[in-house]
Design a protein around this nucleic acid. Structure first.
Lengths: 217, 217
DNA sequence: AATTTATTTTTAGTATTACTAAAAATATGG
DNA sequence: CCATATTTTTAGTAATACTAAAAATAAATT
């Protein structure tokens, strides 16, 4: 008997079970209820949460749905991607605080309407909700962020993008543990080369509160 | 015998197989090579890519690794009317020839002026000189290209960018030995959602890189 | 054209494991 | 304490993930 098949085992998701459990606890749900909601058995939930077994994609999808969470949230991977930063000679400058730095990409010429910049955001940093004219696009070069547009929350990871009208109230949050680099492209003049009033209507508690003292690891 | 378990089936990921295939094609890899890299069999790859079976999480992880992509990229859930695109769930389509493929990033809504797309260019390929209205920006995600703008020649490598008025005659050339991936962003409607004639020839037939006549199940 | 050779699809079968149901264990609390 | 809710364990099966090899298709070569 040849036994040359490689054991990939639970290499898939480091602590998928733990994540599922954490989420369930966060929602204060019982195994029974999520089992029902997902059409699975309690015992199985227990096994999955403790990593004794790995759910199928279908079950994981049901599980994620029962927990009202995106399936990919449970599958963080140590990203084997390369990241050579040889984009030399671009000076990064920070405005206001040191949590964010910018690398300007676009130039400005007469009548230019297109602006682009790479934004580096430190872990935990939030971009306050804002609304203005024009439209914009993000492309995640590295790391991951949470984007909220008029209540809709999306998680963007490396390679993902989003395109929307700037007038819709939007905010971002680097929920990850590493710096997020976002390639921003839009029609609004973010550099102030031309007068462009940023209508900042940041209401105090308009945004959902993320940190509830949860001990995230 | 009770048969009350609901068939969630391939509800997990709408077109996970298609995504995997698209990514493989994009990297110009053969089933054999990814099978080897992932420690799986060719036949199985075939089955997975056509949605005949669903890989386990472990296998999916191996597969993602073999394709140098984050696992979550393949598991994007259909969220309500989002304008988000996720890597690998974006289907690349090629126009005219197979030397170039595109991954559309931007959507189009009323009055949208911003368009973005990722362009993959094979080594040696040239983009013919062109001039049109608007402005545009390149950002090199991978590989390197030579850009010529009104006689001025520039070499752009990973992480570099360029921004210019589209009316200036411009052309690009992948002088490197690997596929160049360029994030393109501009004000011209390259997708034809609105009337904007590009250098398009008489063949508006967009040939998907997929097998013609996919047998949908 | 044929005849290679590479690449993908199909087929059939097995070994793995995802999953269940029910019983033990552990906690919760009145 | 007792009663109930919740989680863990156990044992077994039904499903399917996966393989190996053959058939089919496509792509080169002569």
């Amino acid at each position: 008997m040849l036994k040359n098949n490689i054991q990939v085992k639970d290499n898939a998701a480091p602590d998928l079970g733990a994540s599922l459990r954490a989420k369930r606890k966060e929602l204060k749900l019982t195994m029974q209820s999520v089992a029902d909601a997902a059409g699975l058995s309690v015992g199985f939930i227990s096994q999955v949460e403790r990593g004794l077994t790995s759910p199928s994609l279908g079950s994981l999808a049901s599980l994620a749905a029962a927990l009202d969470t995106e399936i990919s949230s449970f599958l963080h991977q140590p990203s084997a991607g390369s990241q050579t930063t040889h984009e030399a000679s671009r000076l990064a400058y920070s405005v206001a605080d040191a949590d964010v730095s910018y690398e300007r990409l676009s130039t400005s010429f007469a009548g230019s309407k297109l602006h682009s910049v790479i934004v580096h955001e430190t872990p935990g940093h939030r971009m306050e909700p804002i609304s203005h004219h024009g439209e914009e696009m993000f492309y995640i070069l590295d790391g991951e962020i949470t984007v909220e547009i008029e209540g809709e929350v999306e998680v963007l990871r490396k390679g993902d993008s989003i395109h929307f009208e700037s007038r819709r109230v939007h905010s971002t949050w680097n929920h990850g543990s590493s710096i997020a680099s976002i390639l921003w492209c839009g029609t609004m003049d973010v550099f102030g080369d031309a007068p462009a009033p940023i209508h900042k209507k940041a209401s105090p508690q308009e945004v959902a509160t993320y940190p509830t003292g949860e001990t995230e690891k």
